[in-house]
């Protein structure tokens, strides 16, 4: 099932690339312009994705008869249990990446490490202490290493 969704997404992407590759400025290139190669790749990719969808669709159709057991509710419960942390951490990571520019590198990084550490690990006082030490040491260490050795300017927002 998932493969079919991926296939559809890939076809949409290929169409998007194909339709947007027509109006590039023409230079003195008789046959291939800036849009030709992307169009070639997009067409091949779309064909492959269609084959994938047909194959998986047939498999799904064949197995429909014997499919049993897990209902939708049980499946959702399983997904939620198995991937709970993945969703949570990805959401936290998105917030972290989004705020890094607004609040500043050091504060957001320390906050992210502590929060993610407590989400994945146990929420005990001991773990909180361990994660805080790790967060502060790592963040400040990396910050000063990159600023002094490589002259990287980290994003500073309202704070640092």
């Amino acid at each position: 099932m998932g493969e079919i969704v991926i296939g559809v997404f890939i076809i949409i992407l290929a169409i998007l690339i194909y339709t947007n590759s027509g109006d590039f400025p023409q230079l003195e290139e008789p046959v291939l312009d800036a849009g030709s190669y992307p169009r070639l790749i997009a067409v091949i990719l779309a064909i492959l994705a269609v084959i994938l969808i047909i194959r998986k669709g047939m498999e799904l159709y064949k197995s429909q008869a014997e499919r049993s057991g897990m209902g939708i509710r049980a499946y959702t419960a399983y997904v939620l249990k198995e991937y709970k942390l993945v969703f949570l951490i990805l959401a936290m990571f998105a917030v972290y990446v989004g705020l890094i520019d607004i609040i500043g590198f050091i504060v957001t990084t320390i906050a992210f490490i502590i929060a993610a550490g407590l989400t994945v690990g146990p929420t005990t006082k001991r773990n909180a202490v361990v994660m805080s030490i790790v967060a502060v040491v790592l963040t400040l260490g990396m910050y000063f290493f990159f600023e002094t050795a490589l002259h990287v300017r980290f994003p500073t927002g309202i704070l640092i």
Binding site: A116, G117, G121
Partner: peptide, 13 residues
Amino acid sequence: AHVLVPVILVLCV
């Protein structure tokens, strides 16, 4: 793992 995962994510960033 709960120490490694956040630390390595930050290293990725």
